[in-house]
Amino acid sequence: MTTPSQTVGPFFGYALPYERGWELVPEDHAGAITVTGRVLDGAGEPVPDALLELWLGETGTRGALDRRGPGVSGFGRCPTAPDGGYRFRTARPATPYLALLVFARGLLRPVLTRVYLEDVPDPLLDSLEPALRATLVARAEGIGTYRFDVRLQGEGETAFLEF
């Protein structure tokens, strides 16, 4: 019998984030990319107390939590800033997408989505009408930087997933 989910609340900030949690790869990692954006609520206002988790599908050579030395950590965590902003430095995944979980005060369970780095033929993307499809595709901004906003509710609401 499954244990029910409860909100992460507003006070996780001294417990869940860990040092350099947003850096899945070191700065000098060949081919490193940055995924950045904001979390916005139904009024278009920033969500300053969300926690994002990024998952590459493999733990990576450094381990999920370990940030020492070269190589890849397949998991990362980033709390949002007062402007709702977050940032991850990561390796490119083997898939066209990264898995992203968002927790926040006011979310009684997390929302799960995918960050597609390119708009490519894909079973999920191809099943969506264009406006919804667009919410899952990050916007390339310069070399190696991708912008991906999470809109929890309302206009441009991100497509969230369950399995």
Partner: peptide, 22 residues
Amino acid sequence: STLLRAPSRPPLLLKADPDTIE
């Protein structure tokens, strides 16, 4: 706090295949 943060659409139900990283 759920009023402006709860998604308005139910999550999309995805079929899993072996490559699904989730």
